[in-house]
Amino acid sequence: MIKYRESKISAHHNYLVNDMLTPGFVVGEPDKQGGFYFLADKVLAGESMPRISCRLLEEGSGNLLVELNWNRIQSNPKACIHQSIPGGFQILLSSGNVLLEVQTQAFANGYLTRIKARLYDEKGFLRIEPLGDSIKVHDAEKPVLDSPFSFSP
């Protein structure tokens, strides 16, 4: 058998991760207080925007840089900047360097979101890094979301 990689695929919207389409994915533990996570949530039919929620930490110190909830800044102790770009947005560090870029391409009948970022967890491990025009996720398991993520109450 030829080796292969596989994922789920949505007819409506996908993210490009590890050179694969996927309806959604989560890295880290969204429910863990103060811990790193990156959630690219399933986008429902009729919606055109991706759903990015994340807690991004500083490399080395593990301090919180910024927290996003559905593409909007929720907590911003390091004065990061949310900047609109065609088809998406960027989160810039106060130094002006791009921390995260999210850009959505509209097709005739669907959408594809590409993410660019280099992200570390609280232990200093590289969890997400750029790969071509998208990202590579470093995780033994890469949970694929084919329905919207549910946070613990």
Partner: peptide, 14 residues
């Protein structure tokens, strides 16, 4: 007809 809510499987052979 086009069904936006459909979900399938995608395979990338090497």
């Amino acid at each position: 007809p086009h069904n936006s809510e459909a979900v399938g499987r995608i395979i990338y052979p090497d």
